[in-house]
Amino acid sequence: MSGAAVATAGARAPGLSRSMSRSRRVKDRAFRASLWACGFLALLPLAFIVWYVLVKGVSALNLDFFTKEPAAPGEPGGGIVQSFVGTALIVGMAIGMAVPLGMLAAIYLSEYGRGRLASAVRFVAEILLSTPSIVAGAFIWAVVVVAMGTFSALAGAIALTVLMWPIITRATEEILRLVPQELREGALALGVPRWKTIARVVIPTAGSGIFTAIMLAVARGMGETAPILLTALGQDFLTTNPVAPADAVPLRIYNYARTPVLSQHAIAWGGAIVLLAAVLVLSITARFLANRQQRRIR
């Protein structure tokens, strides 16, 4: 209220900066400064993390790192090839499951979804986005791991699917909604059945936008540790068996960081560099594509 009164007083003396009381000016300056400080504070950790991961991890990167199984603790050399293979296996299977599930759900929401079921699905997808990843892990542990009697890459992939399905659904829905209604009508008016309209006009037009949604989900899935830990457990040897325990890069980082062995710390940093690079490249590319896509469609 007092702010309004002061403001009116200010308006009565137009153009004279002197007329603004000193305390008001100081307050405004302090406020602006504190906002800038927030911006600075937010950038600090990103810079520090990227910097330290680069500095500490780069020395671990060599051919062995990508091609060898781990050396015995204390012995030099060795790599974490099984982690890379495991991550590829788990994330690959998760993409195979989550992409069709998520895309079809998104198609329902954007192309057919009307009424109560649609709003219920949308709401559930939104709150599923907030499921703690450890809970997805515990859920799949209790269902799949216990039923199969073994930890496995497959269980890991299912746990990631639980996390990625709602992400792909919501992101793809938003992107399909950007496709102009006129294009749908244009195809329908030619006597094209609805499903072909969706498959041949709506989805190709959304094009790279859908790819963006998938990339974001993959970036999320790739970096997850907790759900993989509870379902795939970890593995010291190279395997591509989907029903055997599997390793993953984040899992390896987690395990090595907690040992007292210095050479393993170095490998953990090396893993972090690879993981961070992959995740950041995916996220930045996705964002770039999304921006371009939105401009193209509109």
Partner: peptide, 18 residues
């Protein structure tokens, strides 16, 4: 669908498939 195939339509705003 059959109705629309036999009764074609042209819209106010040109909407070629991009």
């Amino acid at each position: 669908v059959e109705v629309r195939r036999r009764i074609g339509m042209v819209f106010q705003r040109a909407n070629p498939f991009p």
